[in-house]
């Protein structure tokens, strides 16, 4: 048992005896560890915090099952693994029977909710970029879309920094004229 695990076991024992401060310290310490476990288990980034909270609730509910004679980390890891597997199963079942609502399915009356128009603009912009001469297209992709620095873009494209600046300036002018003409 590592020193950290030994500390966790001691904190958990005190938590079982009703020491709220020890329990808060323990939960605070295990949260980053649980986030890492959730991430390794393939939980989506925007779902990790929910997964961690789910594990904490279960830990709280079964805290009387912790045996101080046994190490804390495997106990917590087992709880986390069960909960993460449950979540992945639920997610799988949901994905199997539900169809996500795409932007084109939304028909709300307010103009700002009809976001498919934005998607349409994006498609037009992509088409316009694709129609640019090679040098200009590369400048837009590297400097604007991938947001590389001039130095990085120059290294990657083999063009000088000045040539890239000029190409970008011309590309933007050309795109404006193409898109404004709609």
């Amino acid at each position: 048992m590592t020193a950290r695990e030994s500390d966790w076991s001691a904190l958990m024992c005190r938590a079982q005896d009703g020491d709220g401060a020890a329990y808060a310290a323990l939960l605070g310490e295990v949260v980053p560890w649980l986030r890492a476990l959730a991430w390794k288990a393939g939980t989506q980034p925007d779902d990790i915090e929910d997964a961690v909270q789910d594990i904490l609730l279960t830990l709280h509910d079964v805290r009387h099952t912790f045996d101080p004679a046994r190490p804390f980390a495997p106990w917590l890891q087992a709880i986390a693994r069960h909960r993460l597997i449950d979540r992945l199963r639920r997610q799988g079942r949901r994905q199997a029977r539900e169809i996500p609502i795409e932007e084109e399915h939304e028909t709300f009356p307010a103009p700002e909710t009809n976001s498919h128009e934005v998607a349409g603009d994006a498609r037009r912009l992509q088409a316009a970029v694709a129609a640019l001469p090679e040098g200009q297209r590369q400048a837009v992709e590297l400097l604007r879309m991938k947001e590389l620095s001039l130095k990085e873009a120059a290294a990657r494209s083999g063009q000088s920094e000045t040539a890239l600046k000029v190409a970008l300036h011309r590309a933007i002018k050309r795109l404006r004229s193409l898109l404004d003409g709609r």
Partner: peptide, 9 residues
């Protein structure tokens, strides 16, 4: 959540 779980433990 931690505050809620650890308060009045």
């Amino acid at each position: 959540l931690i505050a809620r779980l650890t308060g009045n433990l």
